[in-house]
Design a protein around this nucleic acid. Structure first.
Lengths: 361, 361
DNA sequence: CGGCGCGATGTTTACGGTAACATGTCGCCA
DNA sequence: TGGCGACATGTTACCGTAAACATCGCGCCG
């Protein structure tokens, strides 16, 4: 009776699907999970039954039955809220799909990471997800290693022998973005570097420089300033680049969108038109990229997808740590070049000696 | 064998606790869930066993066994990323604790809410969480009602007869914040309103005006401008208030932190010192409140806690819809006045006729 | 003093899925 | 031609918890 009511309310179970397809529940399970050892014909049958009944596996049951009730920790420092919210969206999505239990902890200072980490480990987490910049903290990694926990680093600079990682190819992306600017005729550049505590900062710069080198453009046509990924630091760096007495660049590459947005704001204040007088490009494609005007040309980093992958990967890692076979997996996600309004053709055809853009007081 | 390994790795089960306490698993379950019909002595025994074994109920098993495998939808429009990320943190936390399955969907335009909603309902969600401003969309609410789904509105203006709500007392908070300014000697004010599509905008204004009225300050000492909760709109509104030829206010109350931050930025650009020449207060205590300088005096809204409560509440609602008894619960969360550096004593002791603050070109 | 009722606890079963093992069905080679 | 192995599928048991029902002990009342 009670059972009847339950069934009526919630969706189909694997058994319903099995009956519909005329097979056993186990076969359905196989179709869903791996597809190994199932005839194509049978698989089709099952798949259509799944569609007809609008069946979704229950994550709870799944995690209960699968011998591993995964408990995973998400340790974050203080990334931009734009990054964090997208990351959490992905995490929430995947964890509720898979039934993983996620414990989230913020550690305010990298120094305190050890303590927070201990707390998570004591709470019984089997694996950890480390978004940037924590994935590059040697201290944190050592602690995790000592505790024998599984770990997944998101967006570190390099693959790692000790943990699974999920990255994009920052260098290639920066190169491609720079080539986009070169294609628009730009020859004098500004570059705002990211925080030195993250390897990606360096990689983005390297990609940028590599593209310039390939185009035969020397370092003297480039003004490089230090930034720290924050809006504020972008403003400071942009000020140095634009207040220069030397001819100002026709394009500025900021190592993330926050700094690019700051650069655009400053440019406007100084009376430059973007992209008429000055092209500006960012990196990451965070919400701010379309919140400002003109919308930023940037590189899209699939943060939500990477978060989803991180959840799956950490579960893999936990399994791997238990069986002790195999090596940590290293995933490379695709990036996308997003061309919006903040980049345009270079002003006055590639003349290096012409006057700088007008500078109203 | 396999079982042995599992046990060794993961935490204690309810059975372990039962054995330790010398009772049956069911008694343990009772202690944890309600505590009804259990002798105090037995309860103590069980509780200490729980502590000793560091036992935590498995959310997966719990949601599987409890006849209700809750599937809940989180439908969001485009709140600020600061709000969203904090909200998601709370949601993730609670959903993984309780084992609820959360499906997140973004609906880009309020017009499209119907379609997105339909998608969630077809996916079998039993209840919905609606952060602002969706909780006030009549269209969305009608759709939900029609589908017979449970719903929880977060931060709507008023309690509702049709759905559970979680709010803070915006009017009282605004009043308290205004009284803080009055206490500092301010007598000429600016106010930047929030988006008219949200009732809270109105309530914050009302609280502000109520405090002024109580202090005997007339409307002529107040300059009110329309804003829309965005940084950009705050900038525009602040410009109108500060560019006035009339004596500028000594304090500006912005209906949220984004707009307050914009006001502070503009004030600096115009050469005012904050809070020396001008006090600025915001609302919500979002990340931006401490990212700017000076850090904003504001009202802290416990977003993460409200999100956690929303998850619990929607599960209650689902249960309630099924049993058909009781009325939707209306929760009121506490707010906190946070005094930081952006508010200070009014310049030149409450003289109304004195010269406006210096205005460099 | 016997039965009734209630509070405290135990037992059984189900939740939805998957691992491990069992079975069945071929094709291939000695 | 018989047996063996690989692949396809079914069966059984169990994951950790809570609902439903069963049981037990005890006090109270007629």
């Amino acid at each position: 009776m009670a059972r009847q009511r339950r069934r009526a309310i919630q969706g189909a179970t694997i058994r319903d699907v099995a009956v519909r397809a005329g097979v056993s529940p186990m076969t359905v399970s196989r179709v869903i999970n791996s597809g190994d050892n199932v005839r194509t014909e049978t698989r089709k049958l099952v798949n259509s039954a799944i569609r007809e009944l609008n069946y979704t596996p229950s994550p709870a049951a799944r995690s209960l039955a699968g011998s591993v009730p995964y408990r995973i920790g998400l340790l974050y420092d203080n990334p931009s809220t734009g990054y964090l919210s997208e990351f959490l969206l992905g995490t929430l999505d995947e964890s509720s799909r898979t039934g993983a239990q996620v414990l989230v902890e913020k550690c305010v200072e990298t120094e305190l990471a050890g303590a927070t980490l201990g707390k998570l480990l004591r709470a019984g987490v089997d694996g950890l997800i480390l978004p940037p910049p924590l994935c590059e903290s040697a201290e944190v990694l050592a602690e995790i290693h000592k505790a024998g926990a599984a770990a997944v680093g998101v967006a570190p600079g390099h693959p790692s022998a000790d943990m699974a990682t999920i990255r994009i190819d920052n260098e290639a992306a920066a190169r491609e973005l720079t080539e986009h600017l070169l294609g628009l005729g730009h020859r004098r550049f500004g570059f705002i570097k990211g925080h030195p505590n993250q390897t990606v900062s360096e990689q983005r710069l390297n990609g940028f420089l590599a593209a310039l080198a390939q185009a035969g453009i020397g370092r003297d046509a480039v003004r490089i300033e230090q930034g720290y990924f924050t809006y504020r630091s972008g403003l400071d760096a942009a000020e140095k680049i634009l207040d220069d007495s030397a001819p100002i660049p026709t394009a500025i590459f900021a190592a993330n969108d926050d700094m690019a947005a700051a650069t655009a704001a400053l440019a406007h204040r100084l009376g430059y038109d973007v992209p008429e007088d000055l092209s500006i490009v960012g990196f990451d494609d965070q919400p701010i990229a379309v919140a400002v005007w003109p919308a930023l040309t940037t590189v899209h980093q699939p943060v939500a997808a990477m978060a989803r992958a991180a959840v799956d990967l950490v579960m893999d890692e936990i399994r791997r740590m238990r069986t002790g076979i195999g090596a940590p997996r290293q995933l490379l996600h695709p990036y996308t070049l997003i061309v919006r309004e903040s980049s345009g053709p270079a002003p006055q055809a590639q003349g290096l000696s012409s006057d700088p853009a007008p500078r109203p007081t």
